[in-house]
Nucleic acid binder design. Structure first.
Lengths: 188, 188
DNA sequence: CGGATAACCATACGGTCATACGATTATTAC
DNA sequence: GTAATAATCGTATGACCGTATGGTTATCCG
């Protein structure tokens, strides 16, 4: 419902109707509407995090380059198709409301922190492996990469002509400034 | 009021009270509440654009490097102090609501387009001048730079420890990947 | 079996909000 | 000076929303 018509068209009674239940039952599960919304935000956040983790795991299994796996993981956030556009809308709607809700802000911050940590880990792995120069600071690089990913997602959603086509390439280019070498263990 | 307590605490009657006038008078100037909000969004958008333009003009007057001027212009968007945090909150609140309001979305998109165009122009100027390599595509570079700026602003606002201190440096580093040379006309 | 707990419903209440309305006062133009 | 237009106010109205309440049915455990 949030993805369809926005957060402020979500009312308790509409939610109940959509779920095929009564208002009373919704209240049985959630003390207040805000609890329900918070739960929804946590739900989608962990859902996205799980999907990204799966992409990383599968990429690692197929012994691909760290940069390539990271690219896939970050591209997962780009609103390039219907489902991901929906997810984007939900996350951004909550992010907007998080400006004035500490509870939502905490989920937002925790999610961002997790993404940042995952990128930083990839960079450190890259340093160990040889894909990244030893003098690169992982946290600084992670901040920049996460920022590009987030900013690109916004731009793709806004739909400036041609941006969608080049978003993935832009992401790859940014990663290319950090992952400049080749992994020793992937060489023959 | 949006910066203080958020968009959805803004009601017509509270706005009237804050302005020291009656509800009826607000209605006299704005047919509907949405018109009022749209007007506010347009107002802050042009206000910010004007301030950025002034920074650029002053930088150009003092014959500074294009990269340096651009850095100042972009840093203007970072929520590093009170007024800019307030602005950030307002813009983001509107951006969130723009997800479901075509009128607000248009202002949002137009503003983003203007920022992008300004960055692209700076890159092109840099190419002419010698600060940028000739094979750099201005639009691609502008997309990346704008994305970093936007993403960094989000991160600064979220207040991850240490990010604020390094935000400007991160921005400079990103610009450093595009503005790699020196302007011929600035040399002795 | 029987009692407790969970699932589930319909409705009423109190509050808030956007907007409509009708009126009065000030300003401007001819 | 007067007619029109703008500025200004107070209140009424109708709708909606979150939550409280009180109830009924199902499920499960000892």
């Amino acid at each position: 419902m949030i993805a369809e018509t926005g957060l402020d068209t979500v009312t308790v009674s509409r939610t109940a109707a959509r779920a095929g239940m009564s208002v009373g039952l919704v209240q049985h599960y959630f003390r207040a509407k805000d609890d329900m919304l918070l739960h929804a935000f946590q739900e989608v956040s962990t859902e996205i995090a799980d999907r990204v983790a799966r992409v990383v795991r599968e990429g690692a299994t197929h012994r691909r380059t760290i940069a390539d796996v990271l690219l896939d993981a970050l591209a997962e956030h780009l609103p390039l198709d219907g489902p991901r556009r929906a997810e984007f809308r939900v996350v951004r709607a909550f992010a907007g409301r998080a400006l004035d809700s500490p509870a939502l802000a905490e989920v937002d911050a925790r999610t961002a922190e997790a993404v940042h940590a995952e990128i930083a880990r990839a960079v450190r792995d890259g340093t160990e492996c040889g894909e990244v120069e030893p003098d690169v600071d992982a946290d600084t690089a992670a901040t920049r990469i996460a920022s590009v990913a987030e900013g690109l997602a916004t731009r793709v959603y806004r739909g400036a002509p041609g941006v969608a086509d080049h978003a993935r390439a832009a992401l790859r280019a940014e990663l290319g400034t950090v992952f400049t070498g080749r992994c020793r263990q992937h060489e023959g």
